[in-house]
Design a protein around this nucleic acid. Structure first.
Lengths: 388, 388
DNA sequence: CTGTGGGCAACGTGCCGACAA
DNA sequence: TTGTCGGCACGTTGCCCACAG
């Protein structure tokens, strides 16, 4: 059952677990680095969180640019105490910086480190029913759980895992059945009902450096944990985003934003280096082919290929000459109906390099299901070429 | 069990039920009337909802006055789908109106009409335990439930009641036990767990004009349904309130606010007539005695007596000469620790009339527990004198 | 008049291996 | 290898009245 919990939840949570819950696509710029903040993207997130249309009748602030270069003063990781939805709190300090300065002293880009000793399983109907326990994939159990004492019959142990709120959960881990399998029995249903998990949601376990077990959840995309927000009207929130950023920019003072990786359609705080690379190292033209990373239903990554069909402002009136979603795109696969029809420069990987015509040697490829090409290796090469 | 539910919940809910859930103190100005909107009060509500301090470092908008006179363009009643917490959405249109105009054509004040055929019971430990059902006070059952057929043994019927979301709940109503009593058995526990009711929360039943049963809940004051709001920072919300009001006032356009009666420390949209009456019909001086209405733990009303100890701005820097909480007060009863130390003019009833020295004749008093004076009658007389 | 608790039956929860995908 | 099911034991839920405040 549940145990202690950090009251107030002020400090940052376990980073490894947070990133595992956030998913493989989410990476946060390092504290102290320069970033670009896009008010449009922020408003998109707020609109997504409140399920309201963003294109209201609200005028833009005359002096507020479509991008604000900031120093990322602080980042803390959090999780909603009700839903365990992960989010990050960022303190941004608007700064004046010349293009030259920025290009001469690029920030380090930090890639998202998914934990190594971890597994993530999408729950089946049997896993979430009251009739039984949780069936652990064999590989997963062997990788992250402490080894069982197989001299005992049946082999079993008690597992203790801590969630994002530092709450303890106890499970009986047993290896039984015909054929044999790993199961979580006692304690599992308490966890399922406490977290209100349903079939389709995912659970993940991590073994950290010290051998402690951590666990987290990733809810299925469908159930958007939307709160109708009877606190502030969506218009007022819209105003709030603009006014807070405008005030901070005008007075060179810090402002605070929340980034909800699993709610937001796109990241709206981008490393300055990444932004500049995308902007200056590539010529974006209509007809250009590109790839873009998405998270699949099964919590892994998948790249989709598309073509740039247009260039231009998403909102020419209020946000002229903004780089936010300035590319109109089409997708190769017809099942791409729900994918964005507008993306931003830094989200895509151009496909203009000769590597496409000359795939890497087989020796460099890792094993892959369904005969897809060795995408990760290809990506590494792409990145290199892109860097330069 | 649950049945149909209004998707989107756009339209206004049943007014009678909403007011019953909101409590006896809550009254809403009529649509079309003139009201005074106090940004400070709005900010207080937002701060209470997010459990953050309101006195941040945020500057006031230079052109934003502490009160904005508006036409109440529309009011719709709502309830949080998760918690059933009631709230009202108001559309306000800032208007220019001279003092003279306002005084010459006063709006009708509408008092809150609590339903007549209704009862409200605070749940006991037995009511909420899984061991049994719900014990209905005899008077209550006889007043609002359809009469039982006492020729049957035991007398029993099925009740169907609709909640704020138009969801149906079915209960078995039976009259049994030794001595006999009214009980809700089958269906009751489903309701308790679905609404997550605890001992101390209240449940209320209404029979409307057409004989339909309605039911609602009032949660105990202690469990503040606070959401940490990972959507917008409290600073941004603060900005949002100010910017939305400021923009609406500057452009004479409508803006939308939410009023959460059970979250907000005080009403911040006041009928213009009520505001003027309080402002012009009374001289507020230090030492003046007054009474003020509060809701008791048992969901009834109670008046407390206090003394004005000071007059002056709550926030002289950002909101100079504001009437919002401009009165510093002390309370007669020592148990008044948690009551506000600052109130606004329109919240109190002055005790300066001769009626205090000359209580109304006993014949006019209604029966009252614990020998308290006949407050309601007194209040009626007070109001009359106040009107004039 | 109504809150709590003992008694008891019905139901749901949860552990097990069997089977099959 | 692992998702679902039938079987079964046991704990909880929920209806009844007795009793007392």
């Amino acid at each position: 059952g549940p145990a202690t919990m950090d009251p107030g939840e002020r400090r940052s949570l376990n980073s490894e677990l947070w990133h595992a819950c956030a998913g493989p696509l989410v990476s946060l710029p390092p504290v102290g680095s320069r970033v670009v903040y896009f008010p449009q993207g922020h408003i998109e997130q707020v609109a997504a969180s409140t399920q309201k249309d963003a294109d209201a009748h609200i005028p833009n602030y005359p002096s507020l640019p479509s991008k604000i270069i900031c120093l990322l003063d602080n980042v803390t990781l959090h999780a909603d105490p009700e839903t365990d939805e992960v989010y990050a709190q960022m303190i941004l300090l608007p700064i004046q910086i010349s293009e030259k300065e920025a290009l001469l002293s690029p920030d380090l880009e930090v890639v998202n480190k998914q934990p190594t000793e971890y597994f993530c399983k999408t729950l089946t109907a049997s896993d979430t029913s009251t009739h039984g326990g949780f069936s652990i994939p064999r590989r997963a159990a062997e990788k992250v759980f402490p080894p069982l004492d197989f001299t005992r019959v049946p082999p079993a142990q008690e597992l203790v895992a801590r969630d994002l709120h530092d709450q303890e959960w106890h499970f009986r881990h047993i290896y039984r059945g015909q054929p044999r399998r790993h199961l979580l029995t006692t304690g599992w249903s308490v966890f399922v009902s406490a977290k209100r998990l349903q079939a389709g949601d995912s659970v993940l376990f991590i073994r950290d450096d010290k051998g402690n077990l951590l666990l987290g959840i990733r809810r299925a995309n469908r159930q958007q944990t939307v709160m109708p927000s009877s606190v502030l009207s969506s218009d007022s929130m819209h105003f709030g985003v603009l006014a807070a950023a405008s005030h901070a920019a005008a007075t060179s003072s810090r402002f605070k934003i929340f980034y909800n990786p699993r709610q937001s359609p796109s990241e709206f705080v981008i490393p300055l280096t990444k932004y500049h690379k995308a902007l200056y190292n590539t010529q974006f033209t209509v007809g250009m082919r590109f790839r873009m990373v998405f998270e699949t239903e099964e919590s892994s990554v998948r790249r989709y290929v598309g073509t740039i069909t247009g260039l231009g402002d998403l909102d020419p009136i209020r946000w002229p000459k903004s780089h936010w979603r300035s590319l109109k795109v089409g997708w190769d696969e017809s099942t791409a109906g729900e994918r964005q029809h507008r993306v931003s420069l830094w989200e895509i990987e151009p496909l203009t390099t000769p590597f496409l015509l000359c795939p890497p040697p087989l020796a460099l490829r890792s094993k892959r299901p369904r005969g897809m090409p060795g995408e990760d290796d290809l990506e590494m090469l792409m990145k290199k070429s892109h860097m330069w």
